[in-house]
Design a protein around this nucleic acid. Structure first.
Lengths: 111, 111
DNA sequence: ATCATATATTTAGATATATAAATATATGTA
DNA sequence: TACATATATTTATATATCTAAATATATGAT
């Protein structure tokens, strides 16, 4: 593998890592779960999430850039929804794995 | 939903988030990719990864606690391998999604 | 135009994570 | 036992991320 290809691979890995980073925060994960159940406005999410509106908007921006969600203006509201059904499968598989490994994960202190 | 149930949900979300955190680092993601192709010793991974041996061991410890990999001693070597085939599907779906959204993700500066 | 509400962005400070180096432990071999 | 190699752990530091608050922008209503 030549240096240029190696660099490409590293850039790709950073993209994949960044993608998973989208789901690596409890609030963002919860937002994804909620939106998998149906579209919501920012206000509705704020009501459901016990975090500030600013945080919700920031998390949504993160999820949007990562391709998880998309948004549309609806009057003075902005409605967010899942962009891609593949996320449903990813989340479902992860939940299954976690429930099989919950004891271990809860003890994870590294990194 | 009563407070106790709510707390359970939050703990669950933290577990799921921690699980995805396992894949949210380029080196760890690369390790998972390599191990999906077959088991490897720590030394072999160090040779493939241009990071220090200490880092590789730490990343492996993280992946192990999160349930991605398991290890077995083999003489003075320790062999790591994927624990769960469901990871293969998760990684594959993520790659597909990323390739459909690469332009967006690379621009993501938030969080 | 002014105001109220919804959403987005920015800022500073706190916390978590990553990195590299040093050190410790464990296994096999002479 | 002493030594070499493989792996794990710890430490200090750098970097990234999260949180909360403040502020900015955008939309609809009066």
């Amino acid at each position: 593998m030549n240096p240029i290809q190696k660099q490409d691979t590293e850039i790709q890995n950073e993209l994949y890592a960044k993608f998973f980073h989208g789901l690596s925060n409890p609030t963002r994960f919860r937002i994804v779960e909620i939106l998998l159940d149906g579209e919501k406005t920012v206000s509705e999410l704020v009501d459901m999430l016990s975090v500030t509106q600013g945080q919700v908007s920031n998390h949504l921006a993160c999820l949007k850039w990562c391709g998880y969600v998309s948004s549309k203006q609806d009057g003075k509201y902005v409605i967010y929804r899942m962009t891609d059904e593949r996320v449903r499968t990813i989340v479902q598989l992860a939940k299954e794995m976690v429930s099989d490994n919950a004891a271990h994960i809860s003890q994870c202190t590294r990194m």
